[in-house]
Design a protein around this nucleic acid. Sequence first.
DNA 1: ACTCTTGTTGATCGGATGATCTATAAAAAA
DNA 2: TTTTTTATAGATCATCCGATCAACAAGAGT
Lengths: 209, 209
Amino acid sequence: MDIATERDGDAGTRRRLPPQERREQIVNEAVRFFAEVGLEGNTRQLAKRLGVTQSLLFKYFATKEELLEAVYEKVYLGRLSSDWPDRLTDRSVPLRTRLLAFYTEYSRLIFEHDWMRIFMFSGLAGAALNHRYLEHLGDVILEPVLAETAAVASGTRQPSMEDIWNLHGGIVYIGIRTHIYGLPAPEHPEEVIASAIDKYLAYFGVSEI
Amino acid sequence: MDIATERDGDAGTRRRLPPQERREQIVNEAVRFFAEVGLEGNTRQLAKRLGVTQSLLFKYFATKEELLEAVYEKVYLGRLSSDWPDRLTDRSVPLRTRLLAFYTEYSRLIFEHDWMRIFMFSGLAGAALNHRYLEHLGDVILEPVLAETAAVASGTRQPSMEDIWNLHGGIVYIGIRTHIYGLPAPEHPEEVIASAIDKYLAYFGVSEI
DNA sequence: ACTCTTGTTGATCGGATGATCTATAAAAAA
DNA sequence: TTTTTTATAGATCATCCGATCAACAAGAGT
């Protein structure tokens, strides 16, 4: 009972870390923690995981809400701030190549347990950051994809925003069913993504070299 | 302050309902309530909505967990128990017509605020019912769709289960983005669905009359 | 009217949870 | 070593939440 009740990380010893380092450690664990149990997860359990007292958390974050915002920031930041808009509209490259590059990279970024779950939790909670992210995604990714497709689409069929959402949703759903619903992941996601893109392009008569 | 604090439904008066009726009333409101605030919503708030004391809830459900199971049952039941397997495999009807009929009906059933959100909440919580539902969906809907598509697919390309998931996910994502993320719904979902199905069928060279 | 059944209320309990405060000790400064 | 700083622990508070229980009253039967 004595040794068994010891802390996970550093058994019993009181480690004194520089604030910046400790803060980072807390946020990192908080991301994993809240992604697993949901945003209502309690601070005591989180503290236990860190091998630290619950009160310590409130030295770094005045309220739990403030901690959650740090979690949001950590998770959301850098996930959509890139040169994609430029690369997606670079017409010297075939649209198929561009789409493939984007969704390969993007899926690598978002098909990640913590991100997928926190995004869904915060989406259900109606978090403002969620709406901003999706708005940004629409402006910076989906709209350009629509314009680029329209530019090279042959035949009478012209793509609408709904078609882009369908392409996007079909791909993102891979992450949802694996990380939210816990279903087995496809063995070769790249192939699945490529297939989705080809299906999309073929439908609008895009045939490139 | 006096009249303002009155209950929503029946101002102040203590209404005595037959147990069956009261139970149904509780479950109905619980579905709406938990769909909105999440499964951690507290019983006091729910009771307030019902214009009833919190303790009354525990006369009808021994624990909150039991109430939640009643909510699950109410929401899940009848959402996938139909003659779809038979209709989906009826080869006297063009596959496109079958798929269109299925997804039109199915989307009408699941693109519903309460269902979508409770499904997502319970999915994140890892509820057993969720897994059973998806397993059932795979066996009863997706597998048949795969078999039917393979039967009429022309050309070298043969569909895999991943392709069916892509079709399904692309359509279901409409409900996710509207009811979970709170984005505006498409004006004509039927057209969007039809477009998704046509894109899918065209990719596997299915061309029927 | 009267009695009986039981649906409903109001008060309350035990535990959990966010947050606060003081004492301690680890690391840096002298 | 001694002093100073402050990161950390431990105890505690106020509130919230699920659950319990005794008392009350609405409606049915007589």
